[in-house]
Nucleic acid binder design. Structure first.
Lengths: 127, 127
DNA sequence: GTTTGCCTTCACACTGATGTGAGGGTTTCA
DNA sequence: TGAAACCCTCACATCAGTGTGAAGGCAAAC
């Protein structure tokens, strides 16, 4: 699929898809005329990248953890490329992600509780 | 407490504490000499702001949801200030936060699974 | 075959969060 | 009294992610 269609399907501007490629997050091949050619799986990949970006990860971090994000069943990262340093780095990033989850969860719960209290109050005054 | 101490206690540069104030996230009062004077509760407040910032929220959003984040027991936002529009806005932001949590959770689980598979593999080859 | 639309690269601009330093007042302590 | 360590404001710089537009090639449709 060409960049325009991927853009329409994901809602991500073509400009950004080119940027993500420049950052090593996407690797479309090229048709004979130079046009980018994305596999259907790119749609999910783009959504995943967007989600992580929205959650405060940098393209640099995302590029590093991306290989660890697909089917966990069998390792498709060559085992000899997985240095202890890399594992440590990824583990540290996982911890930071966990911290984000905890922080967001706490705040989400607080907001929901507040919202519930407000609507409850409204129900009361209405009756 | 003065800005230097708050900075030391939170690990956030004084520059940033001034910036958060400019963005309406902190409201220290001023001593006679113009120095900022923070209450002890500012430590937690700063940590909360940092966590949300790291999780991809903007200072603008944080400022808006901050009043909804404290003790949910009794509403200390004047009920008459809580317009339906504001409630809707906060609800929408809560949904976006939920989406972030889900995205991060999925990816965190995938990374952990990968990490576990790798260490398992290492345990095997070691034996 | 020309128009229309999508693609290419390049480049400059903006925004939000942050770093950094200048220039100057205040507190503390020797 | 002077030095060190705070604090203040102001302003310019940087970085990542994005927006936008120019200049031009390719493709499908009239």
């Amino acid at each position: 699929m060409k960049i325009g269609e991927l853009s329409r399907r994901t809602g991500v501007p073509a400009r950004m898809l080119r940027y993500y490629e420049e950052q090593g997050l996407l690797r479309p091949d090229r048709a004979g005329n130079g046009y980018r050619d994305y596999p259907p799986s790119a749609v999910d990949r783009v959504r995943q990248v967007r989600g992580l970006l929205d959650s405060g990860l940098t393209t640099d971090i995302i590029r590093r953890v991306l290989p660890f994000l697909e089917k966990p069943t069998d390792l498709h990262v060559h085992p000899e490329c997985v240095t202890p340093e890399l594992v440590e780095l990824v583990r540290a990033e996982a911890d930071r992600i966990k911290a984000r989850i905890d922080c967001l969860s706490r705040n989400h719960d607080a907001i929901r509780a507040y919202l519930d209290a407000v609507t409850e109050r409204l129900r009361h005054t209405a009756s």
